[in-house]
Design a protein around this nucleic acid. Sequence first.
DNA 1: CACAAAAGAGAGCAGCGTTCTCGCCCGGTG
DNA 2: CACCGGGCGAGAACGCTGCTCTCTTTTGTG
Lengths: 256, 256
Amino acid sequence: MHDIHSPKQEHCSRLCAPLCFRGTLVRMSSTAHGARARARVEVTAAIKEEARRQLAEDGAAKLSLRAVARELGMASSALYRYFPNRDDLLTALIIDAYDSVGEAAEAARDAAGGTGPVPRWTAVCEGVRRWALGHPHEYALIYGTPVPGYSAPRTTVPPAARGAMVLIGILRDAHRGPGLAGPALPAELRPEAVRMAADLAPDLPPEVVVAMVAVWAQLFGLIGFELFGQFNRVVEDRDTFFRHAVGHLAHTVGLR
Amino acid sequence: MHDIHSPKQEHCSRLCAPLCFRGTLVRMSSTAHGARARARVEVTAAIKEEARRQLAEDGAAKLSLRAVARELGMASSALYRYFPNRDDLLTALIIDAYDSVGEAAEAARDAAGGTGPVPRWTAVCEGVRRWALGHPHEYALIYGTPVPGYSAPRTTVPPAARGAMVLIGILRDAHRGPGLAGPALPAELRPEAVRMAADLAPDLPPEVVVAMVAVWAQLFGLIGFELFGQFNRVVEDRDTFFRHAVGHLAHTVGLR
DNA sequence: CACAAAAGAGAGCAGCGTTCTCGCCCGGTG
DNA sequence: CACCGGGCGAGAACGCTGCTCTCTTTTGTG
């Protein structure tokens, strides 16, 4: 009976470390009254952090709520106070992953600095690829087989667009500057193109927007094939191959 | 005690139906001596058939050996006489899925008949897309997140290439006929391109082969984004969008 | 200080993949 | 024809999973 608290001690040692780490940062932003709410966001963050660690290690399929709780020193049932089920925890990780890849794209754009639109385009694409190679399981989580049911909740839409917005920004600069040679647009696709442009980038020509969306999907075809082993024994020099391919994608979307 | 055989009866009723169905076909081809070996391939086929059914219904993540065995009326442990573990069963389904999509590509090509290379190209791409939309879980199994570990066994390579070979055949026809306007090939990519051409299509120009591989990956970027919900609230008229995109891919690879 | 809400603990349920051991029964051999 | 070995199925068991329910502890607030 006397050692029944030993897991609880582990709870405190393991859990409080990451919590206190972020505590000072959260103290200001958490306007919700009381330390209660603060503790809640901190425990939530700790759960996500540990889950992300396990995701990066073994992939989404192996991610186990029990293992996360065990590592945090809490009962598995307690975890359900924060995430109603496994899929909701995964959804939180999905949003984080979208933000992570979006950040990588923005960082690559900023690192490319004042070069021309095509080198910046290439740099961003390579940044996304490098992020994917470095975070394969996170990549699989968001661009691989969808895990929960079939439709992602609406919350995931804005973070998902973040990366594409970086490329659209480059197109916008090019459109204001040296100009953009938009590909031809068949009449049957025009209404759809106009609608997409209104939603995504009203200041760009519709034919460029429609090409951009297609190219965005194609970019992840290239990355996914490399990451998921489809290029094994087919493509060897993948850096060069990828750079060549995304250069062609830039051309497709109208950059010269 | 006396009703202990009732599962066994179900075993016979459910199991023998598909077995006897294929029995006459297998009788000739199965040269392995004895009915013993014949029964083995038949039970193996029945397991795969039921597994494929469950895969199509609920996806690979939900596929359960116990459920397959239950549906077949046999003990779950007995299933391990045929597949040493779950991953090996999935691998068998993967190979079947590759063959299935390859067949769909070939059928689309044959249905396009004597039209020009570009319409035939488009028809094959649309055939692959239609197969994917009709078999989303099979698609996810082979082009989504890889399930077992990270490297597919060598056995999956030839079936995986079957679909690409259809498109390569179209390129080959165009190369012998109206000609193929291969895109430029930077010097740094030339050695890789020559190697790839030697492996895949020695009779095609290296720059066409390297573009073909890239385009093949990009095709599945388009299909995957549509299937996995990335186009939700972005692309509405997907038929038209896809046709336009693959038309551009044909241009990329040199078809005019 | 008292009370209600929040949160953690623990047991329990059903399901899973996998392993082991046991009997049965069929097919090739003497 | 008798026999026997080996393939095969059944069933129990282990450890794991997601998830629920109940009970107790903690904690912020009127």
